[in-house]
Design a protein around this nucleic acid. Structure first.
Lengths: 221, 221
DNA sequence: CGCGAGCTTGACGTTGTTCAACTAGAGTGG
DNA sequence: CCACTCTAGTTGAACAACGTCAAGCTCGCG
């Protein structure tokens, strides 16, 4: 199987290595809401999101979830389980229709070990991912609801959809899990923001109207 | 300058590379409470903690801090600023007397790029560090005070001091910043735990008595 | 038409922060 | 040697923030 859709995401590999990886790869499609990787399962694969979006979340143990980030096309997941972890420490579920490429972890790992350019690509990935999580931790540890919701809205606009107008692919409950609160708490803040004309909100269509204000709310909390 | 105290932390480097790194290295001592790296400053160095402990924290912008982890001897900081970030995204302050080794970021980076074994060591470091932050995010996003304090206590016992009896090197305020709450809130929980004989607490001397119970509190919140 | 799922709002109780007062110990200067 | 002051720690009370519970609403579907 070839993996042309993976595009430049695997740069640094030579033809032989690319072939070895492709041979171990499987392409799979998922319907909306299906679980792609399950927390606790044996970490056997690295996944590459080819098409669609997916929510990367932690099962907190008390029946709730915490969405850490939204994966968009050409992003990876499972790299955090490359070393040490025998099991996935997170879950991944599709939003809408998605298509993913599954690479065997062992092959992926040996490529990192033998190809320095590739190893550096992964390094860089870690660096960015680490930063993002640290940022989220900061928000969670220091801001209250208004700030966390504002942050989540801006995260979606800036990092995921690259537009101030987008279709929130999440249910209210899922959006709450992204902002780290309850469904009702989130809804109240959103309603408030709509009343204050900071955002437009029709069902799952979101438009950021007063971005400067939203950014201020994120900062002061 | 040689860097024998860095021990096996820089494994994978050959003699020439080790020499190049050593030549760029500076050894510095810090008194209790002094700032080693300052959030926002130009990220010019990677630091290696040779002796003592340090708190790795984020300045949240509203005058509060959030302690992400406690660095112990032979750990690194600043690796998260290797790529992209021109400025440190965190601060590092000494707890007690510490001694650190400063490496020039540019030299460090070129070693990663040319030495695959070293690159993999860093990769692994990222992987572990990433996991730790994700774990903390999970706690912050899903547990309330009791759980967060229990988690912080167990973190110190298991990951930092490797003993159920240790000298908390943090003030109450700093410990609160580790647990993500206010000084008063933390004190109340600690008093409760002392009254319930879950921990012993004399000034900054901590002893975990009922570990099983503490672990349960961490899990159920 | 009835049913269920997702969304919304109000009421209420819990949790946690803030403010203020108090204590103990350490350091300072008369 | 004793006020005085400063800091860290502790506790109580008032208040705000947030989660939970319950009810109603809309919409799509059988």
């Amino acid at each position: 199987m070839d993996c042309d859709l993976c595009g430049g995401c695997l740069k640094g590999l030579n033809k032989e290595q690319m072939g070895r990886l492709s041979k171990s790869a499987v392409r799979v499609s998922f319907k909306p809401g299906e679980i792609i990787l399950k927390q606790g399962a044996l970490a056997s694969h690295i996944i590459h999101l080819v098409r669609g979006y997916a929510r990367f979340y932690l099962e907190t143990g008390d029946g709730k979830n915490l969405i850490v980030k939204i994966l968009k096309p050409h992003e990876f997941a499972g790299i955090t389980s490359l070393y040490a972890n025998k099991q996935y420490s997170f879950s991944l579920a599709s939003l809408g229709e998605t298509q993913v490429c599954l690479f065997e972890k062992s092959v992926f790992l040996s490529l990192i070990q033998e190809n320095n350019v590739f190893s550096n690509v992964i390094n860089q990935w870690y660096c960015e991912s680490h930063q993002q999580v640290l940022g989220k931790l900061k928000i969670f540890g220091s801001r209250q609801l208004h700030g966390r919701v504002a942050d989540s809205l801006l995260y979606l606009a800036d990092e995921v959809f690259h537009s101030d107008r987008f279709n929130l692919m999440l249910s209210r409950k899922e959006f709450a899990e992204l902002a780290g609160t309850s469904k009702e708490g989130l809804i109240r803040i959103l309603s408030e923001m709509r009343n204050d004309k900071i955002i437009n909100l029709n069902d799952r269509e979101v438009e950021i109207i007063k971005r400067d204000l939203l950014e201020r709310i994120r900062q002061i909390g």
